[in-house]
Design a protein around this nucleic acid. Structure first.
Length: 375
DNA sequence: CTCCAGCAGTTGGTCTCCTT
DNA sequence: AAGGAGACCAACTGCTGGAG
C-alpha cells in the first residue's frame, strides 16, 4: 500500500539542486562518488543525493538520469526538479497546496515550517530556473516550460514509478491512476486530463526488478580509510539576494543600552566623569568612557544575546582603542551588553586578566535600568 | 555638499551535535 | 545512518558622522 510519508529526505540540508551539476560533470554512475569537494567546491550530503536520485545498491542510478542527460540540459534540469519535489512528502504537499492550476503556483514560508526547509527549497527552485519571484516569505514558480517539454513525459513517468515504489506501491492500480490518486497533477499545477496526456506511458514505465530501489545497503557500504587531501575549496561567490535590514530600529537598542549605562555610571562617578561616543583620535569612537582620577575606563556596548559573541566582538575593538599603536589609554576595558554572564564567560575574563589584559564585563538591564557588578 | 570609514544587525552558507 | 535544529561565520545593508 502506497504511503507517501515514506518519502523523506532532509529538508534542512541545503543544495539539493547541486545534483544537476554533478550529473552534468560526471558519468552517471560516478555521481555518488563525487558528492563532496570533488568538483568546484560542490558539497551535497550523500544520503540526500541518493534519495533525490533514487539510487540503487552500489550507488547505481536509474537509467532515467543518463537518458535525461543525453536529451539535454533542460530535460535534466526538469527531471532533477521532479526528483527533489518527489523526494519528500512535505514538498509534495506544499506544491499541491501552492499550485494554481495554470502551471504556476506560490509556496509560502509557513508551508514548509517557516525555516531552512523553505529557504532551501526556494533556492532549489531559483537555481533550477523555475522560480519567478522569490521573496522573503514566499516563492512563486512557473512549471509551464517543464510541462511543455516533450522530452520529459516518459522520463517523469518512470521517475514517478520509482518514487511510488519507494512509497510502497505494488503496481496496482495503474501508474497514472496512482499518481492522480495522490494529486501528482496538482503538484505540477495542471489538470488531471492534461496530466494524463502529458505522461506518455511507454512499455518501460515500470522498472524491472533489478531497477527497483534497494534499501538494505546500509551495512554493505564500503568504509574508506582517512586520506589527506591538500588543496583549497572555492566556496560560493558572486551575488546573493538579500532582504532589507532593520538597521534603523537596531540602532535604537544600542542607544537604549548606552543611555541606561550612562545614567548608572553618572550616578556612580558624577556627570563630569562620564562621556559617550568619544573619539580615540584614530578615526574610531569609544561607546562610553569613565574618568577615574587620572585614568580612564573604556566601555564597549554589544547587543548580541550571546555573551561569547559580545566578548568576541568587543575585545578586538577595546584592545585597539586602548593600545593602538602602543600607548595604554585606559586602565580598564569593560564590555557591556544585555547578555547574562556564564560560568565559562567569567572564567574566560579571569584568565584574560591573569595574562595582563584588564577586561571586565557588566550586564545591563534596560527594563530595570540597572547595571551589574563587574565580572 | 559628497565621500567614506565605522558600526550594528541581518542573512545565507557551512558545519556540528543531538535525536530518532 | 539519517534527519533536524541551530551555532557559527563571513558577507552584506543601511545609518551615522567626520573629513575635505
Amino acid at each position: 500500500m502506497t504511503d507517501l510519508t515514506r518519502l523523506s529526505v532532509s529538508l534542512t540540508k541545503h543544495g539539493a539542486h547541486k545534483v544537476r551539476s554533478l550529473l552534468e560533470k560526471f558519468p552517471v554512475d560516478d555521481v555518488l562518488k563525487n558528492t563532496w569537494d570533488k568538483h568546484s567546491g560542490i558539497r551535497i550530503d550523500r544520503a540526500q543525493a541518493r534519495k533525490i536520485l533514487s539510487a540503487f545498491a552500489g550507488d547505481k542510478l536509474p537509467g532515467i538520469w543518463a537518458e535525461a542527460k543525453r536529451r539535454g540540459s533542460d530535460t535534466l534540469r526538469h527531471l532533477v526538479f521532479l526528483g527533489i519535489a518527489f523526494s519528500h512528502h512535505t514538498l509534495i504537499d506544499a506544491l499541491v497546496n501552492g499550485g494554481t492550476a495554470d502551471g504556476k503556483g506560490t509556496i509560502l514560508r509557513a508551508a514548509l515550517g517557516g525555516g531552512k526547509a523553505f529557504t532551501n527549497f526556494k533556492n532549489d527552485l531559483e537555481e533550477l530556473g523555475l522560480a519567478t519571484a522569490a521573496q522573503v516569505n514566499s516563492v512563486a514558480y512557473d512549471l509551464r516550460g517543464l510541462l511543455a517539454n516533450p522530452q520529459l513525459g516518459d522520463l517523469a513517468a518512470q521517475l514517478f514509478s520509482i518514487k511510488l515504489s519507494e512509497a510502497g506501491w505494488n503496481g496496482s492500480p495503474s501508474l497514472i491512476d496512482e499518481c492522480v490518486r495522490f494529486n501528482f497533477h496538482k503538484v505540477l499545477s495542471c489538470s488531471e486530463a492534461d496530466f494524463r496526456r502529458w505522461l506518455t506511458i511507454s512499455g518501460k514505465v515500470v522498472p524491472q526488478d533489478d531497477e527497483l530501489p534497494d534499501t538494505k545497503d546500509a551495512n554493505e557500504e564500503a568504509i574508506s580509510p582517512f586520506r589527506f587531501h591538500a588543496g583549497h575549496t572555492d566556496r560560493k561567490t558572486g551575488t546573493i539576494a538579500r532582504r532589507s535590514t532593520r538597521a534603523a530600529s537596531a540602532r535604537l537598542l544600542h542607544n537604549e543600552i548606552q543611555s541606561v549605562l550612562y545614567a548608572v555610571l553618572v550616578a556612580a562617578h558624577g556627570k563630569a566623569n562620564v562621556g559617550t561616543e568619544l573619539s580615540t583620535g584614530s578615526s574610531t569612537t569609544i561607546d562610553l568612557v569613565v574618568k577615574v582620577g587620572v585614568t580612564y575606563e573604556f566601555y564597549e556596548i554589544k547587543t548580541s544575546p550571546s555573551i561569547k559573541k559580545c566578548l568576541r566582538q568587543a575585545l578586538s575593538q577595546l584592545i585597539e582603542y586602548t593600545y593602538w599603536p602602543s600607548a595604554a589609554r585606559a586602565t580598564k576595558m569593560v564590555v557591556a551588553s544585555e547578555a547574562s554572564i556564564t560560568r565559562d564567560g567569567e572564567l574566560y575574563l579571569k584568565h584574560l586578566r591573569s595574562i595582563g589584559i584588564p577586561v571586565y564585563y557588566r550586564q545591563v538591564d534596560r527594563s530595570k535600568k540597572t547595571v551589574s557588578k563587574e565580572y
